[in-house]
Design a protein around this nucleic acid. Structure first.
Lengths: 348, 348
DNA sequence: ATCGGCATTGCAAACGATTGTAGTGCTGCT
DNA sequence: AGCAGCACTACAATCGTTTGCAATGCCGAT
């Protein structure tokens, strides 16, 4: 009775809030169904009536309850974006590559009228992905990176069509992927070093993830095809920001100056490598040449500027959303493999 | 009639899917209400019955429809994270600072059992935020950055309690913010340069956003308190990755060597500045010292390593989620201002 | 005058869960 | 034997939309 907010409905131009379609229908002197149609802009309702209803809605700032609409129509307009953190403990999400891809996905989804729900999961059991796709909140799912969760992803793909995964496509694999030809990418990077006369190469990266393993394989292809290069060594280096510096430092100390070229599995690893080499007084690329992978925006701002293998992240994001849209419509799409491109700057 | 999937229900170990609670109830020989309670683990239902129901649900991989649940309970468990791109046209989302904050928000929200829905909006009209909070899908909203949208945010805050914003707190402001004392931060950065004997300072940043304006004001405070330093100059520099390099290059060319210290409004701007100075043969910090702002993870990997003003991003994210939780419960929380911290590395 | 056809609008049944209330059967006490 | 009390479960209303179908009123044509 003494509340301050009840008496003057017309204060500040914002009328008392309308709770639901029925209330608005009563105000407009029509039925709820008509209001629903009017708000949806359907042509079945008289233009004049429609205008009037829309005017009232606008005036009161009314918007129909999405939850009810989605329950009724059985579609949510929400796409789940999932980042599985299988092989990395911490902070994976701030990885520039994931973030760049994520940003482009957000763009593409927004553009196609979808909402985006983020699930950042640390796979504990083998049900994590099932839980997400069965939540009943999603029209489809995009998985960023296979991590070491191929089995869980494959299991869901057997029964759940609207899912697209960023990563590698393996022979006989059911789930639909979008990704770069990582093997070719690794080949390009190593070949660049070989072309520059480097012969004692090493690979920095965690081969637990299939993408990375492919990059190493590609680099080894190039080395194997070279007559006078010794076999390529691989040093495990995780992708998480926290661990890279000490791991790379350890590798560099251990390797000493018996190397003259480094193929890094990502630009982030390469950035740290560049800094540590600089601090050790090693000249890049004269003493040791370094290549990255991804070509994230920040890679253009390193000292020296990073030579890297470019993935078309924006194009990949668009492809993922396209394929997903098709799959939501019931089409069983094939995987997409994009060509990598060597971007030569200064570090190699 | 000739469908391939109907005859053998027990193929591959995964039983035919249960569509809803009623179906499961029929299978278990109980009513829907009981199933609902059993699945929720309530104690009102017989332990044995509960076990049996849960077993059936597990076996068939059944999970209750979230949309229906949320419609009925009138709460969604979803928090909207909004990134307004008012003063930047493109690609803002891949900004390392936003991404780091976003990652920590994702952590904190996941931990508190919330889902996260991302809305990346380019404010076209003055209703964009209204549309989001009125969508009926959200328990609350977190806004990352005020951009130049103070008015729109303030308007919504008048009537919508569960919203917390990352940014600056202004006198008399209604909406609840979490942020760093940007003025103090700017002061710390400039003071560091002054302490190193630098006198001809310049500020790189876009003062259209209130946070950045505060940083410049703080830097000017420090300069004004110094007897022999001329007034500080400010060069507008946008935050988007695409534009930074050419803008900074333009500033450096224009300024020539009449400066010896640069206060950058963000680490990203600082990174580009470092690279461009290096390419021009300018030594950092001997000839020109450079400070950043934010202390994003990548800032530790620059050459030379970046001296910067640290924001406690992880703590800020936790604070935002804490405050939002309180506001969802109806508590009118005050803003939180965190202390910045100067992190001295090599660039200044 | 009657009726077919058209443009609108109202009615009511879904969608799938949650939850207050009422009902059931059983135990144990008097 | 009768009944209160207990533990459990069924019933049915509810959340707020959407949408197929029926109903209405009005037009011109026969």
């Amino acid at each position: 009775m003494t509340e301050t907010s009840n008496d003057k409905p017309a204060r500040e131009g914002s009328k008392p809030r309308i709770r639901n379609i029925a209330e608005l229908a009563r105000m407009a002197g029509v039925s709820a169904g008509t209001v629903s149609r009017a708000l949806a802009g359907k042509s079945l309702v008289n233009a004049e009536t429609r205008e009037r209803i829309q005017a009232i809605a606008r005036e009161h700032g009314f918007r129909p309850n999405q939850m009810a609409r989605r329950l009724r129509t059985q579609q949510t307009g929400v796409i789940g974006v999932v980042i599985p953190l299988g092989h990395e403990r911490r902070q994976h999400i701030s990885d520039p590559f994931f973030m760049t891809l994520f940003g482009h996905l957000a763009d593409a989804l927004t553009e196609s009228g979808h909402d985006l729900m983020l699930s950042r999961v640390i796979p504990g059991d083998d049900e994590w992905l099932d839980r997400i796709v069965d939540s009943g909140m999603l029209d489809g799912a995009l998985v960023i990176g296979q991590s070491n969760q191929m089995d869980a992803i494959e299991k869901v793909a057997e029964r759940y069509l609207p899912m697209v995964v960023w990563g590698s496509h393996r022979e006989g694999q059911i789930h639909c992927t979008v990704g770069t030809d990582n093997r070719l990418g690794g080949h390009l990077a190593a070949q660049r070093l070989l072309d520059q006369g480097k012969r004692r190469l090493v690979f920095f990266g965690d081969t637990g993830a299939p993408e990375i393993a492919d990059r190493l394989a590609g680099a080894r292809d190039a080395v194997a095809a070279c007559a006078d290069a010794p076999e390529m060594r691989a040093c495990s280096t995780h992708l998480s920001n926290d661990e890279i510096p000490e791991q790379v430092a350890g590798h560099l100390d251990e390797l000493g100056n018996c190397i003259d070229g480094i193929v890094c599995a990502s630009d982030v690893i390469a950035m740290t490598t560049l800094r540590l080499l600089h601090e050790r007084g090693v000249r890049v690329p004269q003493d040791v040449a370094v290549t990255g992978f991804d070509d994230v925006p920040i890679a253009t701002q390193t000292v020296p500027r990073l030579t890297t293998v470019r993935q078309d992240i924006a194009g990949g994001a668009r492809a993922m959303v396209d394929l997903l849209t098709q799959r939501i419509a019931g089409v069983e799409t094939p995987s997409t493999i994009m060509a990598p491109e060597l971007v030569v700057r200064e570090s190699a």
